[in-house]
Each structure stands twice: as structure tokens, then as C-alpha cells.
Amino acid sequence: MFNTLKNRFEQGYRTSAYPKEKIALWRRYRGLPQIHKDASAELAAECADLCPQNAIDPVRRLIDMGRCVFCGTCERISNGAFVSFTNDFEISVAEKEHLLTDGSLPSLADHSRQHFKKLFGRSLQLRQVSAAGCNACEADLNVLATPFFDLARFGINFVASPRHSDAIVVTGPVSRNMKTALLRTYKATPDPKVVIAVGSCALTGGPFRGSPEITEGLDTLLPVDLYIPGCPPHPLSNLHALLTFFK
């Protein structure tokens, strides 16, 4: 008993004050990409050429955050002169076309559906479906339950059954072997319901693009309401998206 109390004392109070207080992530963290329009055409073309995810449009000077895995190759190649990654983790969007960006994102709050806020603003129950990713997205959704993030304090929980949920949160590139289970889970979720796509795989197939076993974008199967980019998205990106979209 004494040992339990001693540990409790040592651990202290750890819950973050976000969103009331802003959090500045370490500068090596790669969040919202910023395109520098004044970079030369050759540099832009070189970055596009070396991007492993084919995420850069060098002519329109845009980067597709749906495909991007935030590996930082373009920033390294251009030494930050064409693309630099900021430490801004608030990068989720409600419309797929907004993933294609030069670094200025429309406000998620303005694009969230007002009736969702009314329906789910005080209580939101999520059902997660893991569909063939690498389990990193799942891991960084799971941590939202740990004391630092403490998702439950906002009235948001992950639940064990689609029957109890308001939204499904899908990760992974939806393999052929997982498609039916995903569609059945969606069907089992009562209306009105929300679909949230988390991570590069669910957005576009991510690192697995081109494999005949996967689906290149959850939106080709289900109507997606909220897109959270990243490989995986930082837990704070997930938290920001949920709070801004529903609160």
C-alpha cells in the first residue's frame, strides 16, 4: 500500500492543458508542410522526383498530405528552400481536396458539419477499425486514453461495438481480406454516423500504393467526413481533429 502511494506521488499530475494551452512540439517533428513558392523550378522538380510517395506537384507547387508520409526527404534535398515542415500538428481537413496544400489550410472548424456538433458535441463514441496498416496509427490512437491526453475528459471514448458508436475511425489501406469486415462494421453502426480516416494508408493507400491487395483511399469505399494525415498522425493531430470537428 505504501509502495502504491509512493509511486502515485512520484508520478504526479500529467494531464496536458491542451487545447486551452498550446503545445510546441520539438522542431524535428514534421507537421504541416510549407511550400516556398520562390524556389527554382529545378529544385521543385528534383524534390518531386525524389519524393518516395509521389506527393509533390512541382508545377502547381502543392504537396499532397494524403500521400505524404512526412519522411522529410524533400526538406532535406532542398535544404528547406522548397519544402519545410513546420511543427504545426493541426493538419486535419474535412474535404479531400484540401489535403493538396501549399501550407495554408482552411480552418477545420469552419468546414465541420454543424449538425455533427449538435449531435455529438457532448458525447462521442468511436469504434476503431484496423484495416491492414502497420499498427502505428492504432498505437497513436490508443495513447489518447493515457493520462497525458485523457480523451475521456472531453466526453469522447473508444467503444467495443459498432452498435454503441457514433463514428468509425479507420486506419490502414483496407486489404482485400479486411474489406468485408470493415463494410459490415460500417453497416452495424447506427445512423447518423461519421467516418474518420486516419493516416496516409487510409487516405490514399500510403506506403502500400500499387499493391493489388489494398484499396487506394477509404473514400473509394465509404463517405469520409474527416481526414487526418500523417504516418502515423501525431496523437495531438488526432486530438485536435476530434475536438475541432465535433466540439
Binding site: 484495416a131 489501406p173 486489404s175 481480406n177 479486411m178 469486415a181 502500400f208 499493391s211
Partner: peptide, 9 residues
């Protein structure tokens, strides 16, 4: 269920 054909990719 998670099969993505990684080796072929």
C-alpha cells in the same frame, strides 16, 4: 486480414 503483399511490393 492485414495482408498487403509487402514482399511483392
Amino acid at each position: 486480414y492485414q495482408h498487403r503483399a509487402v514482399e511483392n511490393l
